[in-house]
Amino acid sequence: MLKYIFKRLVYILIALWVIVTATFFLMQLAPGSPFASERSFPPQIEAQLNAKYGLDNPWYVQYKDYLIDTVTFDFGESMKYKGRSTNDMIAESFPISLTLGIEAMILAIGFGILFGVISALYHNKFPDYLASTLAVLGISVPSFILAGLMQYFLAFKLGMFPVSGWKGFAYSILPAFAIAITHAGFIAKLTRSSMLEQSNSDYVKMARAKGLGKWTTVFKHTLRNALLPVVTYLGPLTAGVVTGSFIIEQIFAIPGLGKHFVTSITNRDYTVIMGTTVFYSIILLFAVLIVDILYSVIDPRIKLRGAKK
């Protein structure tokens, strides 16, 4: 196991290097600059700006700088937000996105699995139809529409929640739901389908024959094995959700990390693009690693080293 993890860490480092390299060249290729605006300024000023931020260096020098930044995990000053370091920007906004993300994940997993189990247990009966319909609605109504509707009706018309901002738990409920619902719908569908596959397995029949109740069987036996595809989905999903959602943060005016992923690119704020990309990549790569480790915990038949010849 340790050897496996060590090997994976090596792969993570290689993957990170590829990501940094690819991102660097994409940034180089994309037209625009952090200083571009409708109002152009004299070429001399542009040259000064490029010199100040090292954009006049040949590409290999800039590339080397980004590699050093990544190794030391210090991405330097934002080119758009004067005097602000990329690290500070991430450090200030990530805890907010993390909090919201964890809340959303709990909701998504909780409701998703609950609905999925209900659907599977009452397969092709009314509760299944109801739960499945809700799940499909969740999947097909995107979060930006849902967020707008909830904000307008629940927060403004009914006054049940604050409209926007980030000043306490009450402020996080609507955004967390808006993020969670699509994922909950998908988790429900996934759980339902793999529960159905398991429910006709011998071991489930055996458990029922032993006299275990419907729900006990679910929680002691079926669910555990049915969770495998869900866990696969959850790994990358968690990485995405805890690093923030641009649209939800925008609608609810939450100062989270999600916006930096988008605005840094539209601003061509190169240092912030690289910083957020590396940060997200690390979280994603580790989330995927954890999923793989969980596989063998959930299903001992899965061997991490791969197929035996």
Binding site: A22, T23, L26, P236, F261, I273, T277, L285, V288
Partner: peptide, 11 residues
């Protein structure tokens, strides 16, 4: 993983 980590918007 790499494909999903490289900024999509840039691509």
């Amino acid at each position: 993983d790499i494909l999903s980590a490289v900024p999509y918007l840039l691509v």
